[in-house]
Design a protein around this nucleic acid. Sequence first.
DNA 1: CCAAAAGTGTTAACAGTACACCCATGG
DNA 2: CCATGGGTGTACTGTTAACACTTTTGG
Lengths: 246, 246
Amino acid sequence: MSQPATHPVELEAIKRDQDYPRPAVAVDLVIFTILDADLKVLLIDRIGEPFAGQPALPGGFVRVKEPADADNVGDQGEDLEDAVLRELEEETGLPHGSVFFEQLRTYGKAGRDPRMRVFSVAHVALVRPDLAGLAAAGGDAKNARWVSVRHERPERLAFDHDTILDDALTYAQSRLDTSSIAFELVPPTFSMTELRSVHEVIRGEGLDRGNFRRRFLRMIDDGVVEQAPGKRITGRKPAAVYRFLR
Amino acid sequence: MSQPATHPVELEAIKRDQDYPRPAVAVDLVIFTILDADLKVLLIDRIGEPFAGQPALPGGFVRVKEPADADNVGDQGEDLEDAVLRELEEETGLPHGSVFFEQLRTYGKAGRDPRMRVFSVAHVALVRPDLAGLAAAGGDAKNARWVSVRHERPERLAFDHDTILDDALTYAQSRLDTSSIAFELVPPTFSMTELRSVHEVIRGEGLDRGNFRRRFLRMIDDGVVEQAPGKRITGRKPAAVYRFLR
DNA sequence: CCAAAAGTGTTAACAGTACACCCATGG
DNA sequence: CCATGGGTGTACTGTTAACACTTTTGG
């Protein structure tokens, strides 16, 4: 710290505010679902440059409005979260609120988008498998599709989306036991095996039935889940179904 | 999803890129240290409007350059991380690399800065107590100072910095047992009690000496720490000192 | 009746909790 | 010699992990 007596830091800051060029801020989405006991991510194909034709994570720019003036205080455009909700609906076709999401982190390396300076606030979204069929059905030019993360992941995604996808996967794994994200990947009522399958697919390894069952029973004791009426009839012995208590 | 046959999404994006106003991107820093067995955060006083004179977290805008043109491809300004390093040095006076930091999350509600649309990428930084004395010594206009998070926290911080500070504290607590952050808050060599004190101060509650010791011994077994030569002589019985193996 | 998945039990190892006790040191 | 904190032991409880057994169903 070697600042003269005046306020050079603040003067500098004011100068920056007015003179420096502005970046763009985008949201990128890592939208997971589970289909056929396999973890899938929603990918699109890029249409324009750069990376035209390459697979990429869906996303878009946050819609920002002009700085507030006297008679227009406070309208600075959409909230970051609203941008996510808007993009989620655009990409999946699913209604607001039916898709769970959390912020992952922000990627801000210079040059990550060659067109201009873009900060991307990445989010992880989870689509229940009973809704995933509805999503991404439209075969528009972007070719939105579910891709198996482990078995048909493309060589190379556009921008730094490979890194983002890796981080998202690590994030989901680390939050499996400390959050309720697993419940976002099962239907409203589910059997123990269905929930266990979610854990297995995200962790990428099998789990002991008996041990998972005891953890599950503790969740019932703790009031996290409760048994729901009915049974899941899936060819073999019918299983009890449960429901998550938000 | 109801897109006509052409590429309206991409056209829309191009239009936005050119026509929509741009936001600013800032980094805000929650800089923690431990002094006198008390968790401290570095606060400044705001100089200009808005919130002039109010305490706030230190931070500043990321320096962005004009979009690349033909002979200037790739110079889009500083990386997000570089902005953090620069601000950390400006605010603490400590050299690059001597302060640990991690990204917390991004705050992007419209109106959070009344001047203009600002996205703030908040970071948590940890200053070793043996360096904290050097930091923030200069009594410049911003009045940077260490403030006890639990005992002298101001009523109200500028912007949404109250939320950011709360989130940072929760983050530090949640990462105590699953990361090496505790080692960033002790000198290069430290006694068991010094490390335990870090845990206690961040968690806000006492820990059993014997139990902490056993966890510590496991860390030695796991090769996370090793004993260092010398003893810590602190008035009472000298304690063995250890060093963290990155 | 048989394969497959549901549902249950058993055991050893390990980790967390709450103590109690002795030891070394500086004042 | 005593208060303080370092260093150690221990008994209890809870959790994890591996695995074996029984039950219920559809084909």
